[in-house]
């Protein structure tokens, strides 16, 4: 349908994919360096307050923290490549396992948030631009500026107070009431849908509503603003003027021609917005006691569990790179000019 064919975008995809490797490598270096320059002694923390100096040093040797920094990095890098992120300094569990256990909850939360942000953000942005300077536009703009400015944890608590404590409509926190049903994919909503288990679906939906909404708001505000700006810019372009002068139906102009051009800037934004979601997830999961990676990171930070923090950072960075790769591919599908 006029969109670029797979063959045409393959070179673009490959050229972007090649960049993933050095980007990831850079990410690993930065996480590692940051974890070693922080002025705290993770070994001492792990050994506990009661440990003697000898015990701390013994643990240091055991964990390999006494070796030269480059040697430590070499080992770390090698381990990362075989999928070993080390063990938690506190629980001694494999961090990869910890992350894998908590991954589905976070994926579910971010996906639902992303969906809310896009499904509401793009139409609101378009409406706001098309009805420029109307009451609707002003309202949307106030809300989107507010959405960016408001602190997530405060908003989360206010929503909890209103909807859970006062009105009692939605659960206060957690992912499910009681024990979650046996899960095939780890995504409760998807499982319930696949099993046609509408009771579970309803319970899971009630739990995810507030955290997903709170998490979505800054991202949605960003998408609204960029979509509005994009549409306004496109509405002023020469081809819109030409199409109007040639009497193209307004619906064709707006939904076919303007929409796609405006989408190119919005799609690029969505990749960045995903970073907002990941960062927001740490706070939101902590407030809503959502058993995901964000909550894990939050707890790890409180405990200075360095290996776990590094594991989370790598995961978040990796997924961010991955999402932006997808965004680049989608962008090249929308814009067939090949901007690689």
């Amino acid at each position: 349908m006029g969109y670029a064919s797979v063959w045409k975008i393959l070179p673009i995809v490959l050229s972007r994919a090649v960049w993933v490797v050095p980007t990831l490598l850079g990410l690993i270096v930065i996480t590692f360096v940051l974890s070693r320059v922080i002025p705290a002694d993770p070994v001492a923390l792990a050994a506990g307050e009661a440990a003697t100096v000898e015990q701390v040093e013994a643990l240091r040797v055991k964990l390999g923290y006494d070796r030269p920094i480059l040697a430590q990095f070499g080992t770390y890098l090698g381990n990362v490549f075989v999928g070993d992120l080390g063990r938690s300094l506190f629980t001694d569990r494999e961090i990869v396992e910890d992350l894998a256990d908590r991954l589905p909850a976070t994926i579910e939360l971010t996906l639902v948030s992303m969906f809310i942000a896009i499904a509401l953000g793009i139409p609101l942005g378009i409406l706001s631009a098309v009805k420029r300077n109307s009451l609707m536009d002003h309202l949307v703009r106030i809300l989107s500026v507010g959405g960016l400015a408001v602190a997530s944890f405060w908003l989360a608590i206010m929503l909890q107070l209103l909807f859970s404590m006062r009105l009692g409509w939605l659960p206060l926190s957690g992912r499910y009431s009681g024990f979650a049903p046996e899960s095939a994919t780890g995504l409760l909503l998807l499982d319930a849908l696949l099993d046609l288990d509408f009771d579970s679906l309803s319970i899971a939906l009630q739990h995810i509503t507030l955290p997903a909404l709170t998490l979505a708001i800054p991202s949605m505000a960003t998408i609204v603003r960029f979509t509005r700006a994009g549409v306004l810019e496109v509405l002023n372009s020469g081809f819109v003027m030409y199409e109007r002068a040639m009497g193209f139906p307004e619906s064709t102009i707006l939904f076919k021609y303007v929409f796609r051009n405006a989408l190119t800037s919005t799609v690029t934004q969505i990749g960045l917005v995903f970073g907002l979601l990941l960062a927001g997830a740490v706070v939101i999961e902590a407030v809503f006691n959502w058993p995901g990676i964000g909550l894990y990171a939050y707890n790890s930070i409180l405990q200075s569990d360095y290996n776990a923090i590094m594991g989370f950072t790598l995961w978040a960075g990796g997924i961010f790179i991955f999402v932006n790769l997808i965004v680049d591919i989608v962008h090249s599908l929308i814009d067939p000019r090949g901007t690689a």
Binding site: G2, S237, G238, F239, M241, Y242, E243, R244, A245, M246, G247, F248, P249, E250, Y257, R260, N261, T264, I334, D335, P336, R337
Partner: peptide
């Protein structure tokens, strides 16, 4: 009526800048 029956049908336009008048993303 103007948009449907006159513009682009009985009266058409050749624009100043053809680079601007085509949407770059569509064939």
């Amino acid at each position: 009526r103007l948009a449907r029956d006159v513009r682009g049908r009985r009266i058409t336009l050749i624009p100043q800048d053809p680079y601007q008048a085509f949407n770059p993303l569509f064939t």
